[in-house]
């Protein structure tokens, strides 16, 4: 499993947090050609799941049309400092990553 970097931060908002993540990923559509004219195989993040203190709070299913290095923000209500925010993603080749942050 290739190592990919995922960054996750949480900003406190009026009624919870705004979770923002940056996933280092090529998000290939399968339509692009390399320098030799061969098709670059499709490779994209299929989903990003968020949970707070182990409770699932939302899934972002993505298609190959999301920009390279997906940069996503997602509001989650009723989250306070000290809560554990976790993110898990997986792509179409089975690569995945999980990160966890304590909300400050």
């Amino acid at each position: 499993m290739a190592k990919r970097r995922t960054r996750l931060k949480a900003e406190i908002t009026d009624n919870g947090i705004r979770a923002t993540c940056l996933i280092k990923h090529p998000m290939e559509t399968g339509n692009r050609l390399d320098s030799e004219g061969n098709k670059i195989p499709i490779h994209y993040v299929k989903y990003v799941k968020f949970s707070v203190n182990g409770e699932h709070v939302g899934t972002l299913n993505l298609g190959p049309g999301v920009s390279a290095d997906p940069y996503l923000s997602f509001d989650i209500a009723d989250v306070k400092a000290g809560d554990k925010l976790a993110l898990h993603w997986e792509d179409n080749k089975g690569e995945s990553d999980t990160v966890e942050r304590v909300v400050k």
Partner: peptide, 25 residues
């Protein structure tokens, strides 16, 4: 009109779904 028109399907729970930001092609 994108080659693959569907970009994202977000399944929310009662705690989410009011705000979302992303970058698309």
């Amino acid at each position: 009109n994108n080659p693959t028109p569907l970009l994202s399907v977000i399944e929310t729970t009662p705690r989410t779904g009011n705000y979302l930001r992303m970058r698309i092609k």
